[in-house]
Write a protein that binds this DNA or RNA. Sequence first.
RNA 1: UGCCCGAUAGUAUAAAGGUAGUACAACUGAUUUUGGUUCAGUUUGUCUAGGUUCGAAUCCUGGUCGGGCAACCA
Length: 556
Amino acid sequence: MSEERSLNFIEEIIEEDIRSGKHGGRVHTRFPPEPNGYLHIGHAKSICLNFGLAKKYNGLTNLRFDDTNPEKEETEYVDSIKEDVRWLGFEWANELYASDYFEQLYEFALKLIKKGRAYVDDSTAEEIASQKGTPTEPGTPSPYRDRSVEENLRLFAEMREGKYTDGEKVLRARIDLASPNMHMRDPLMYRIRHAEHHRTGNTWCIYPMYDFAHGQSDSIERITHSVCTLEFIPHRALYDWFIEELEIFPSRQYEFARLNMTYTLMSKRRLLQLVNEGFVNGWDDPRMPTISALRRRGYTAASIRDFCERIGVAKRENVIDVSLLEFCVREDLNKTAWRRMAVLDPVKLVITNYPEGQHELLEGENNPEEEGGGGSRQIPFSKELWIERDDFMENPTKKYFRLGPGLMVRLKHAYIIKCEDFVKDESGNITEIRCTYVPESKSGSDTSGIHVKGTIHWVSVPHAAKAEVRLYDRLFLSEEPAAEGRDFREHINPESLQVLPDVYMEADLARAEQGRGYQFIRKGYFTLDKDSKPGALVFNRTVTLKDTWAKAAKKG
RNA sequence: UGCCCGAUAGUAUAAAGGUAGUACAACUGAUUUUGGUUCAGUUUGUCUAGGUUCGAAUCCUGGUCGGGCAACCA
């Protein structure tokens, strides 16, 4: 069937399950975010995995919000999560919430109490912690561990009724205080929280813990393959224990290694810190690794899906080189982005032998990668142009292919020019470059016979549109800003955002559409920012072009 | 010190006892009206010690190294 013979370990498990007829060959996964923050590229890996698995094996995927902690969860996050999953190109079978199951979960708890498998504990958090023992020493029983079923039933009902304050009592599973797996030492099932929940409001004052909600939710939804990250491995024994004791649908949990990426952070807690402490301007600041930030920056959904495909799925801890993500977006944008010219750091160039007041329209294809150039646009040309300041060198080095005194270069889509002279101000800055052009070298009908090594981009001075351009670089200077013993705040790149307020570009760009990628020739991929307004254009740089010249120049 | 997971080029990921391959990165060169793209090529790898086997990255045993686990978070 599958041509690409190599499967990841989860696909192998699923194919084996299908072969053996488990669940009648049915595959049903879920993506279970907690709505307490925005989704990041690490979640994209999980989304692509869960939805991708279901798609590949003709199954379904639920979107389930794991909302069992009313103090951290908000509707704003629910909305952003839905938007991000959709944008990535996935369709969920059902939109569900763990809070939908609160009543059912309560019934499950009752069942365990009646079986003598759960008890109400009056111990404080500190007492319970010390009762757990240590990895090498067994725990000790709580003095309340052997309450009667009747008493437990009454107390638990009273907990629900609101008779107790936060922390006064908890419901615990009665398992094994000597288990080498700490999670099996009578874990908490319910705690009291007199807090308003984003969906259930004040209906409840007791809330189930993750371990007493997640597996049961999977089971209620008849999830066949519950895929999560490595840190939940020790929870699996508990996951299975509850399912067995409750005698409910046997969902199974499988764990893979979460995504880590160089030069960024991947923990919601730290990302929240970046937002709250003002290191970035919100969750969708284009320097963030969140899906919303990547989208705003100009990353395409296709490129993120491709990235998730390429990084693979395994159990080994990994740190992916961010250059792979950049490669993926360049590869996608190279095929789809319209080429335009924009001069980021302008210096004036005057063509002395071009008639004053004359201008003409030249043609430039939208995308040379597309068949037939993907259509074209007209580019106004005139006597005065803006060119890039670093496309001129007063004393050019031997391998410099651009402009310098006496040197010739091609103006993209236009003519070959020769630098005759240049003007400097008192402080030695070049203020104007004076050239002559070769009339018979016009792009497309060049009869000059002249061959030049370099081609530069330009914008006609009287026709230029002006825009603000935001250049983004990695947020951190260190490959692993959150590595052990580090305060990531000390590794922030002070130059991660560079704002260019006055960039000249082709007037055509005034009609740029949001969500579309543009390649500013020789400069990189850009996209219109949401801050942009007619007459006050704002572009974000998605990623630079690969620049082997800059690399070579840096080396000397 | 208990339990659990893992270990293949710089980074990831394949090879289900039979030629260690692929991608990114790096480096050469060719092409190019983007120092982009494309194309061709190069460099670099099975943690370790034993064992089983005609044959081990793969199976077994010991070790080493890395990570996780003792929240009324998920």
